[in-house]
Design a protein around this nucleic acid. Structure first.
Length: 947
RNA sequence: GGACGCGUAGCUCAGCUGGUUAGAGCGCUUGAUUCACAUUCAAGAGGUCAGAGGUUCGAAUCCUCUCGCGUCCACCA
């Protein structure tokens, strides 16, 4: 054995070297793993955004996934964990824009090309930072397969996906009211809109014969209708009529500028709530999705009065050029002057805001690209939505915890067409081109250039907003216009927009495995080759429940559509990390955030990982704080010292080199206890010796923990797995067995019960069991144990049924020994006697042999000397009576009285229970037997206490 | 408005396919400590399992309602 390990484990001294050792071994790559490994196990890492650094949420997901990956690798499976990062379009672009702003510039100053260079540079730097931070968490990712959503091949996958969908009619360009963020200068999908309760006003405005109520008076300048409920008697006569409304006073000023006349059509729709406001709603088709739907249904005009910058357009008359809020103020004041405001109430409304920048969303009409989710897919007679709902309903994809099934279905059922075009520069540019020679507007290139402040060329602006330009959808830039044959590159322009970042993320499980090159298109299911064939569908998708809609649902949609198979078999949702008081950790309040890297530095990666896993239930949030992490740091140190003790004790008693010790069996087969002439024995170099009760007990407990850990991990019960292993390691192995081993295994006193083989046998396998949870410390210890070997590719222990059968007698007997020891210790402590003194002690029991066999253990651990005769304090256990040679003090007497009262009460309860005929006739025999036994034991004990 | 989660020891949480005198870690109290570990060891105190009904021989666990906390979805203009 090498030099002794230090007393305390200092993670920072080892972790980097260990990771280097793992990575350079090549075993993160499944192709290099030893053995046949027929079964594959794969996880695609949810790609972190290249926006900065790792946060605690990443650490959680990495921990869960690494546990699964390491477990399956140890199980002998072909295990792939594929890393990558997401370009995170808007998020990344806005980080860089902020940097630019600090330098006094905007992206428009740089221009598209220069700006993208800058973002790419930032992304590359960010990737390097994140990569090293991920490594710090111990994640055993196959870096040779690392991907980035903007990689060449992945970008091509995106374009192919787009074209395939376009050709199938599942992607279309349409003019609709979209969610527009005036700050990001882009559309957002419905899922990217968040809601915030805001104190506002509800204005009652006189609309000719009708009064309407609104929270956004300025939009009334674009009203073309008034909606009422069909049952509402107040407005019955007006339904179907068109009314003229003048939204300013003609009295004060005679100039036409001062008045704003609109024509509104009154219609009835059941969706209108009669109770709200006046029961009449001004309808603004251009600036509300709901109103736009009505406009289509009731054939209303749409007047765009707010532009992309949040400024009133020329259609707003004299308010043109004002910001929305300025316009509201001015307009309300004008209305007031004109006497058109009936009243103003305080009102709390749910303001829609951008999930990235919290800016209020401005719904406005725009020509954008959409994914049609309700349209039947040609040849499949199902829509994307139906496809994605089905696989979860049928159970092809299992969601853990299953309550998220409901969330999933609800979202899927209500899903509307997905707006995928974004007006930002960073991302996958839409694979669509337009031929200027084919458009009627080719002569209008100079028109409206002044209004173009979107940072795109005038040509692009016209193309994008134009109506008559035929899109050319193509995977690569077309050489010529398929329609007119024009070959002039300057006349064939690409759509300036980019795709929603979630569009590329939706392809993640397969675009990273070589799709589409690795999937030959055939009439039926695409034929897969290479990695795609081996690793897709992936085994598990592990992510936070906050991504269920953004990402998980969309991956399911895309995989089913493009590959005709599910992207993953199981979805495991972990909870979000919160502070000790349950508050959300938010980037805007750095003081609330736990920095995973700081914790790793302070307590070690293993401790951080355990603190995030143990005590957490799937889908429920976890509260994390330093004391908790420190607790697991202590545990890791305990494991360290257990190993240190075992390894050094083996050496100290002059064991031969570890290699020379009898190998019980090759790893992977637990074979320790064998029956030999009816007696459990250890096999060692042909020599047979009997095992003590403690030996049998710890081996039995160990085999149970091998089984339960395996089962727990297989069933995604990571927290119970960790808890049970923790309990075994600390309470059973360290606190009991090691202490006993010190006594029984002390060969210097003539004992013949050397524990070396059992200790090494357990330690070897225990390190493997712990490895998925705390990879670093176990690997360091393994190296001390078996220098030159790598723990991460050992074989996971398994137990065959026969060997793991529980011998209840062993359990009972050992439990009695424990109780005897504990009760003596307890009595000693309560009587405040000399802790060092060895007292005489008499044990009366039917199991004399048992006491005799474990005499040394009892004497050693309870600090007593067992004698045939003794008087003093009596301790009454169910199966034994103990007399300790010490004088009783008052405190103990009080305790005794208390115990008598408790026992009497308990006996009464048990008697009543057993006297109840309903109980005895209906409860199972086994339960009745147990209850009777408990009653008997309680009575015995009471008798003894009273005697 | 709809759906979901949570409310168990001072704190953070397990347990919840019904049957233990309800568990863990931290904290607290008492004591120990060359001999693996003070990031330790031994012992202890501390809970009418949010409340009220119900089902059952039996409920922390199943059902109903109430209260409190939180989340998601929809959205009223």
């Amino acid at each position: 054995m090498k030099s002794l390990l230090p007393k305390t484990y200092t993670p920072a001294d080892y972790e980097e070297d260990v990771y280097y050792k793992w990575e350079s071994s090549g075993f993160f790559n499944p192709d290099n793993l030893p053995g046949p490994r027929k079964k594959a196990f794969s996880i695609s890492l949810p790609p972190p955004n290249v926006t900065g650094k790792l946060h605690i949420g990443h650490a959680v997901m990495l921990a869960y996934q690494d546990i699964m990956i390491r477990y399956h690798r140890l199980k002998g499976e072909k295990t792939l964990w594929l890393p990558g990062m997401d370009h995170a379009a808007i998020a990344t672009q806005s980080v860089v824009e902020k940097e630019l702003n600090k330098e006094g510039q905007t992206r428009y100053d740089l221009g598209r090309e220069k700006f993208l260079e800058r973002v790419n540079k930032f992304a590359e730097e960010s990737k390097a930072v994140i990569r090293s931070q991920i490594k710090a968490t111990g994640a055993s990712l196959d870096w040779s397969r690392e991907k980035f959503t903007l990689d060449k091949d992945l970008s091509r996958a995106v374009r192919i996906a787009f074209k395939t969908m376009y050709d199938d009619g599942l992607i279309y360009r349409g003019s609709r009211v979209v969610n527009w963020c005036p700050k990001c200068q882009s559309t957002l999908s419905d899922d990217e809109v968040e809601y915030q309760e805001t104190e506002g006003k509800l204005y009652y405005i006189k609309y000719g014969p009708i009064t309407i109520a609104t929270t956004r008076p300025e939009t009334k300048l674009g009203d073309t209708g008034v909606a009422v409920n069909p049952k509402d008697k107040r407005y019955k006569d007006l339904i179907g009529k068109e009314i003229d409304v003048n939204l300013a006073s003609p009295l004060r000023s005679s100039s036409s500028e001062a008045s704003h006349k609109i024509k509104v059509k009154v219609f009835a729709d059941r969706a209108v709530d009669q109770e709200f406001g006046t029961g009449a709603i001004g309808v603004t088709p251009a600036h509300s999705q709901q109103d736009a739907e009505w406009a289509e249904k009731y054939n209303l005009d749409s007047i765009k009065i707010i532009n992309e910058k949040g400024i009133m357009t020329d259609k707003a008359g004299k308010y043109q050029g004002l910001s929305v809020l300025d316009c509201r103020e001015k307009f309300v004041s004008d209305l007031e002057k004109a006497g058109l405001i009936e009243k103003v109430e305080d009102y709390t409304n749910n303001l829609s805001i951008c999930y990235r920048c919290d800016t209020p969303i401005e719904p406005l009409p725009s020509k954008q690209w959409f994914v049609a989710v309700n349209k039947k897919i040609p040849g499949r007679n199902k829509s994307l939505k139906e496809l994605a709902g089905e696989v979860v309903k049928k159970g092809d994809i299992k969601i853990i915890p299953d309550r998220f099934n409901k969330t999933y279905f609800q979202w899927m059922d209500n899903l509307r067409d997905w707006c995928i075009s974004r007006q930002i520069w960073y991302g996958h540019r839409i694979p669509v081109w337009y031929c200027l020679m084919c458009t009627d507007e080719k002569n209008d290139l100079t028109v409206n250039i002044k209004n173009n402040n979107l940072g795109i060329t005038a040509e692009e602006a016209i193309i994008k907003r134009g109506t008559s330009v035929e899109p050319i959808v193509s995977i690569e830039r077309p050489d010529k216009c398929p329609k007119c044959g024009c070959k002039d590159k300057n006349k064939i322009l690409q759509d300036p927009d980019t795709l929603d970042t979630w569009f590329s993320s939706a392809l993640w499980t397969f675009s990273t495995l070589g799709w589409p090159a690795s999937a030959k298109a055939t009439a039926g299911k695409p034929q897969k080759i290479g990695d795609l064939k081996t690793f897709h569908p992936t085994s598990v998708m592990e992510t936070g429940y906050d991504l269920i809609f953004f990402w998980v649902a969309r991956m399911i949609i895309m995989s089913l559509y493009l590959l005709k198979e599910i992207p993953f078999k199981t979805v495991y949702f972990h909870g979000l990390v919160r502070t000790k008081t349950g508050a959300k950790m938010s980037k805007s309040k750095p003081e609330t955030c736990i920095d995973p890297l700081a914790m790793i530095k302070k307590f070690g990666t293993d401790a951080l990982r355990l603190s995030m896993m143990v005590g957490a239930t799937p889908g429920n949030d976890v509260r994390l704080f330093e004391e908790k992490i420190a607790g697991y740091r202590n545990f890791v140190n305990k494991l360290w010292n257990i190993s240190r003790y075992i390894l050094s004790s083996v050496e100290s008693i002059k064991r031969p080199k570890i290699e020379d010790l009898p190998r019980l069996r090759p790893l992977g087969i637990v074979s320790m206890p064998t029956r030999h002439g009816g007696e459990l024995v250890a096999e060692r170099s042909g020599q047979v010796r009997s095992m003590t009760l403690a030996d049998k007990w710890i081996l039995q407990e160990f085999h149970q923990i091998v089984e339960s850990t395996t089962k727990n991990i297989e069933e995604y019960k990571f927290s119970p797995a960790g808890e049970e292993l923790y309990e075994f390691t600390w309470s059973k192995l360290a606190d009991w067995y090691l202490e006993i081993a010190k006594i029984e295994g002390d060969t210097s006193t003539g004992s013949t019960h050397s524990k070396d083989d059992i200790l090494l046998y357990i330690l070897e396998r225990l390190l493997i069991l712990w490895h998925p949870f705390c990879p670093y410390v176990t690997e360091v210890l393994w190296d001390e144990f078996k220098p030159g070997e790598l723990l991460m590719i050992q074989k996971w222990p398994c137990v065959n049924d026969q060997k793991s059968a529980i011998d209840n007698q062993v359990k009972k007997d050992f439990s009695l020994i424990q109780k005897i020891i504990t009760s003596i210790r307890n009595t000693r402590a309560e009587n405040k006697i000399d802790p060092k003194k060895v007292y005489s002690c008499l044990i009366r029991t039917k199991k004399n042999m048992l006491i005799e066999e474990n005499k040394a253990v009892i004497e050693g651990l309870a600090k007593v000397r067992i004698t045939p005769k003794c008087s003093g304090i009596e301790i009454h256990l169910n199966e034994a009576e103990i007399v300790l040679d010490i004088k009783e003090n008052n405190e103990l007497k009080k305790n005794k009285e208390k115990e008598i009262v408790n026992l009497k009460r308990y006996i009464e309860i048990q008697e009543q229970k057993l006297a109840n005929q309903n109980f005895t006739s209906k409860a199972p025999q086994e339960v009745i037997r147990q209850e009777k036994e408990k009653l008997e034991q309680a009575r015995d004990k009471l008798d003894k206490l009273l005697s």
